[in-house]
Write a protein that binds this DNA or RNA. Structure first.
Lengths: 159, 159
DNA sequence: GGCTAAATCACCCGAAAGAATGAGCGCCAA
DNA sequence: TTGGCGCTCATTCTTTCGGGTGATTTAGCC
């Protein structure tokens, strides 16, 4: 793909915002000519713009910022036959050649998350998760994620 | 403490914002009279206001959004000095209402088999397996087979 | 005999997963 | 500084899953 197109895609939110802003300014200018600017109505005009763009800013912030997360830990007793002292099998991990990120994805897969959910959790795109999960499947030499989980558990790569 | 004071404290951010906005508007009005509004400069003026209040909105959003409370259920192992061999949790099995066949399918799912492979293994049609697996997902109250496996393991329905 | 639950199978449709390929970017060691 | 590796993202296409609905058969039970 050409650099320009990629650039456009990468910055689509910013570009859309810019376009929206331009359109809004145009609209406001037009409205000003038609209705608003009767004598001494500029305060209303400015106030409206202020409110509008404050809202826009809030929306923008919502879109662009990562969600603040405050974790509340609730302990829940669950009875389990074996004390789950999990120790990662480094040897097996080496043998598979899984990278850190791939192991991370594998763990989330084992928790039953969908690719989409994993993407959200790791703040990456769905495509990236799919690439990682594909690599995991290949490196574990399996065909499905459920198999990957089963095998990883046997190899003690995950609890 | 008096109601009014409490109200003021509760809403201090909103009030501060209101005051700031009023001050800014006043300032802008004053600037307008002094410098900015020479002929045809209103576009610049409006643009500046737009940018300013967009920033203000972003800042406001940062301040006002309450962090998403994410409840993390930490499962504290209540240890049970029973053998490491698997014993099916009949009680949990009853509670889920899984039939014998459904449990069978669940076990094969946990082994990482596809529906097609399960069908071959059980000598039934693919559609039948899909029905069973659908029932399993519903009865375990999950959305994906990986989740079903994870939950079933926790409930000790499968090894 | 009628009722019920389980098991079987079918068809449709949308969502998710996976395979294959290409590519840009940052880092690090040779 | 170059080459490899890890991470990221995209596009296209195929397969698999999963939801919804309905139908038939069988076995057990009152």
């Amino acid at each position: 793909m050409h650099g320009l197109v990629r650039f456009l895609i990468r910055n689509k939110i910013a570009i859309l915002y810019g376009i929206s802003l331009a359109l809004l300014l145009f609209l406001l200018k037009w409205l000003e000519l038609r209705f608003l600017i009767v004598n001494h109505a500029i305060e209303i005009y400015v106030g409206a713009i202020a409110l509008l763009f404050t809202g826009l800013g809030i929306w923008l912030a919502q879109k662009l910022t990562r969600p603040k997360v405050e974790t509340v830990v609730v302990e829940k007793a669950v009875y389990q036959p074996t004390p789950p002292v999990f120790s990662l099998n480094e040897e097996a991990l080496d043998k598979t050649g899984l990278s850190k990120r791939e192991l991370e994805v594998l763990q989330l897969i084992a928790e039953g998350l969908s690719n989409q959910e994993i993407a959200a959790r790791l703040f990456v795109s769905l495509n990236t998760v799919k690439t990682h999960s594909s690599n995991v499947l290949e490196k574990l030499d399996v065909k499905r994620r459920t198999q990957a989980v089963e095998k990883a558990r046997r190899l003690r790569l995950i609890p």
